[in-house]
Amino acid sequence: MCLAIPAKILEIGGNEAIADFGGIKRSIRIDLVDAKTGDYVIVHTGYAIQKMDKNEAIETLRDMKRILKNA
């Protein structure tokens, strides 16, 4: 139920957008985020609930490696 999955915004029209879920295209609502074409968003029950930050993902992986080395 709280499952939410990443998708890429392909096209925006008003409150709706076409998003790419790893090859499957679906229409989603974007009322809850400030998204542009090309953004990755996390989608839950048909709504984008947040934008995903690729740099932060890289940062987290880097942190993991750094912390594990020093721990």
């Binding site: 809850l32 947040q50 930050d53 987290t60």
Partner: peptide, 18 residues
Amino acid sequence: NEYSRVVRYEGNPRALKA
């Protein structure tokens, strides 16, 4: 916050307001 690629400190203010 380990999930910083998606979770912000403030959360999603627009969603909270709604």
